[in-house]
Design a binder for these strands. Structure first.
Lengths: 123, 123
DNA sequence: ACCGTTGTCAACCATCTGGTTGATGACAGT
DNA sequence: ACTGTCATCAACCAGATGGTTGACAACGGT
């Protein structure tokens, strides 16, 4: 184990059941049994899902007698959003600056080898 | 098989190697061998990663003789960002509206039972 | 016509994952 | 002191995942 935080977050959100749980927690805290109700699986399975979300830092759990209400920690969502935004913006920027199009110059304009100018081997 | 698009995207991004590839593709298209260079794995393994990204719609590949340059499709990143933003905002909104804090009213102000008003026992 | 480069396909392997059943712990009520 | 509810732990299982090796197809250059 000891996986990086970002992987844990993305991995946690890669499951539709887990995403659905997050969606419901966004509307308010909920206990395990409340969360488990809608899905056709055992409460144990949902407990595992909850554990995954917890390990990813997406939910925290408090104590109320034998109940352990789950609470969405929205801050971690920003971690993922931050990553996504960064590269979305980079790609967009690259597109805007037309590097892309320059690399695909129609060859009938100029006989200059349009393929890699000097992309040696490293980088 | 036949997994929903959002799961595929998050799942694809759950691997650090794959995220790194996305990061590099954000800077410009690259071939399989170029992508494989930095990692201590075989080219076949990277090919599989690329396939996963492709299936998630995150990259497209064109044809240039025997080369198949990979190109980042930033639009799909928006799919993920959109989902994240939605629930981050929902949670934030809930927090801002103080529903949260109301639910945790200090008991020394009011003896009204702060716990679930009518959550019987049924269900 | 050959060779080297680029990439894919297939089989195999170890581990992770999402689910199950069954047993058990920790409480609140009565 | 019981009983019922909420939740966790443990063992197990089938299928997905990330990696390997080995063979092979497709193409450009000489």
């Amino acid at each position: 184990m000891a996986v990086d935080p970002l992987s844990r977050v993305f991995s946690a959100l890669a499951d539709p059941t887990r995403r659905d749980m997050v969606a419901r927690l966004a509307a308010g805290d909920a206990t395990l049994n409340e969360l488990a109700a809608p899905y056709g699986v055992t409460v144990q399975a949902v407990s595992k899902h909850l554990r995954v979300l917890e390990d990813a830092g997406l939910v925290s759990r408090s104590r109320d007698a034998q109940r352990r209400p789950a609470h969405l920690e929205a801050a971690v969502l920003d971690l993922a959003t931050g990553w996504l935004e960064r590269y979305r913006r980079a790609a967009e920027e690259r597109y805007r600056r037309l590097d892309d199009l320059l690399a695909r110059l129609p060859d009938d304009i100029d006989p200059i080898p349009p393929a890699r100018p000097e992309e040696g081997a490293s980088r």
